[in-house]
Design a protein around this nucleic acid. Structure first.
Lengths: 218, 218
DNA sequence: CTGCATCCACTTTGATACTG
DNA sequence: CAGTATCAAAGTGGATGCAG
């Protein structure tokens, strides 16, 4: 059942042994946003075979990255969440995501976007230096995706779904019917003014400064 | 020949499609230190099947991460090196390596350490905040491994082999015969004073401050 | 309906041998 | 030195089954 390890006493090799297998880091990505049920994970990872998902969850649990919780009274069921060790993967996830985002070409037909993916890309694009001292809350809508980003004195809290309170600015990206509601598409729309704004419209400029990725990748 | 992609338009998914396959990031790690020949890579990656190495190198070249150079006159042969795109993977490698280093237990019998692995771990353990303004050069010896770390006004240059000039401090870790010359073992030896020092001995303290990983992992 | 387990065709990996 | 060839074993993707 255990895949052979790399035989190297090295941090990178260890990391790859623990979370380097196919689909593993995408599962961790989805759990980074919030705990999820088995079926939520399946829905967010289109194409993952159910047995692979089950296997990965067991391996990640074994590795101490993921925790399996049996939800009690309210809505019984199984919930998967990151352990503290798993949460510490986020810097690595963001670094990899940043690099990968720069290598993204155009979306392939059939490509999928999830709110989790968009949120990760937003976090990866976050520039603390530009956000210094900024306090503002944003809610972003793109087709059926909704996420929020709350800046409190330069600190970012972000996640899927509407903002906790009333957002200072709500950005609704105009996404064509044949276009993916990807992070890139949202930023592109915002840059071109193809957005509906509600609230303090002047904050759009701030949003773009704080959340625009380094290189729009050509 | 192409492995199915993840069907997500997301930076992380893209990164995993490009460098997420088995052995790929370890190959990139070795090339991060310096360009290498096919047989060097084989030697540094104990256990990698030769056909897998050949396949990965082709895929990484295809992905624009690795460049295959046919060395000209001096010592003819093939050399693999990272492209600029590949070099930009280093932050992600360090982040993953840092996380993995925190999850390292004790070395398993049969584990291997390479100078490249130790160098990566040293880079991952580097704390710019502690190095602020520091200028000093170190050469580290542990059994048959030699590497150097040169700080110039807080900026780090490091690699395998002896330091470019005469190092300010040469640290020779006393590693038991049955112990791996891993980064962890080197730091442990340095902390316990089990080192031979040559040069400005008082710099050992600086070295430890600048290069000690956050959590020795219990 | 959720949360998997099983089965099977197919692909990738690992180990070894061999070649220009 | 720099790979290619071959083949068994393991892993993956897809479909389906099934208990709570």
């Amino acid at each position: 059942m255990k895949r052979r390890d790399f035989g190297q006493y090295c941090g990178l090799a260890r990391a790859l042994e623990l979370v380097g297998e196919r689909w593993a880091l995408l599962i961790v990505r989805d759990l980074t946003i919030r705990p999820r049920r088995y079926t939520d994970l399946q829905a967010g990872l289109p194409g993952i075979p159910t047995n692979v998902l089950a296997t990965r969850l067991k391996e990640l649990e074994q590795a101490g990255v993921v925790e399996r919780r049996v939800a009690p009274a309210p809505q019984r069921g199984v919930v998967y969440a990151l352990t503290p060790v798993g949460q510490e993967l986020e810097p690595a996830l963001l670094a990899l995501g940043r690099w990968g985002a720069a290598q993204l070409g155009d979306p392939q037909p059939g490509d999928h976007v999830s709110a989790e993916g968009v949120t990760l890309n937003l976090r990866a694009a976050f520039r603390p230096a530009e956000a210094e001292g900024v306090t503002a809350s944003f809610e972003i809508h793109a087709r059926d995706i909704v996420l929020h980003a709350v800046l409190t004195d330069g600190k970012l809290e972000s996640g899927v779904g509407p903002a906790p309170g009333k957002p200072d600015l709500t950005i609704t990206a105009q996404i064509a019917d044949d276009e993916l509601a990807s992070y890139r598409a949202i930023i592109r729309a915002a840059k071109c003014g193809l957005v509906d704004l509600a609230g303090r419209r002047e904050l759009l400029e701030t949003f773009l400064k704080v959340f625009t990725p380094a290189r729009p990748a050509s």
